[in-house]
């Protein structure tokens, strides 16, 4: 899922500084699951903002709601009505949701309430780890299912580098060296020959270096008679 983290309250206060009525809108997708932008976080953030503004002597009115998703236009329709009631919206969705809302409602002032961090897994309560970078050209069939693009500090395709020590990366002592893990895994499977070939230089276009990425499925598109 997409992992996000609430922005510092001070930053959000700056964004909404001119307004007296705002909406705080969460998303029940990824950001709810990673405890950054679901119902609970909406409530906490709205309360914190109100309190802070009350302190400043400029009370703030908030409307709170959490949508099923913010990355689908159909779930964003309530924003149309909301923009009559409030001056601005702080969205706790990931950057996708904020962008889509901004696309759909050009005259709505919408601000990000979270920093969208990475695609990650939730190995334990309160912990999230990056596992994929969405590079658009998956090669983890060669690496025992472990991604060196997301999990190696130098995104090496022919690792491990000389900074691999006792299975750890030199970057931070708690970070495992993913190339060490790949080596151990393939060794255990008797597939070390996969590492003897040289991975060629990577095509970074699918990773987004070719401009914004999009995907189309004509068979699923409406009005796709042609």
């Amino acid at each position: 899922m997409i992992i996000a983290e609430r922005k510092p309250i001070k930053r959000i206060l700056q964004m909404i500084e001119p307004f007296e009525r705002i909406a705080v809108i969460g998303c029940r997708g990824c950001v709810a699951i990673c405890s950054a932008g679901g119902d609970r976080e909406v409530e906490i953030l709205a309360a914190a903002l109100r309190l802070a503004r009350k302190r400043q002597g400029r009370p703030l009115k908030t409307v709170e709601d959490t949508f099923v998703r913010q990355c689908d236009p159909e779930y964003l329709t309530p924003l149309g009505e909301l923009k009559e009631k409030v001056e601005a919206v702080v969205s706790l969705a990931c950057g996708v949701g904020v962008n889509l809302a901004a696309d759909l409602f050009p005259d709505l002032k919408i601000y990000p309430g979270v920093d969208t961090s990475f695609y990650g897994a939730n190995p334990a309560l309160g912990e999230w780890e990056e596992k994929c970078r969405g590079c658009g050209d998956c090669i983890i069939d060669f690496t025992g299912g472990l991604c060196p693009i997301a999990r190696c500090a130098k995104n090496l395709l022919n690792g491990p580098c000389g900074g691999s020590q006792n299975g750890k990366c030199e970057i931070r002592p708690e970070v495992p060296c993913v190339w060490h893990q790949i080596y151990e895994r393939l060794k255990a499977r008797g597939e070390l020959e996969k590492l003897s070939q040289i991975f060629p230089a990577k095509n970074w276009i699918p990773a987004g270096h070719g401009g914004p990425r999009e995907r189309k499925r004509p068979d699923l598109q409406m009005n796709s008679q042609k």
């Binding site: 500090a153 130098k154 090496l156 022919n158 580098c161 040289i198 991975f199 230089a201 990577k202 970074w204």
Partner: peptide, 23 residues
């Protein structure tokens, strides 16, 4: 491949690593 930028005097730099040493 090069030492990671974290260890230098510009740790906030974007590391390129378009290629690795072998490539």
């Amino acid at each position: 491949t090069g030492d990671h930028q974290k260890f230098g005097n510009h740790p906030e730099a974007k590391g390129v690593f378009d290629l690795d040493s072998i490539q």
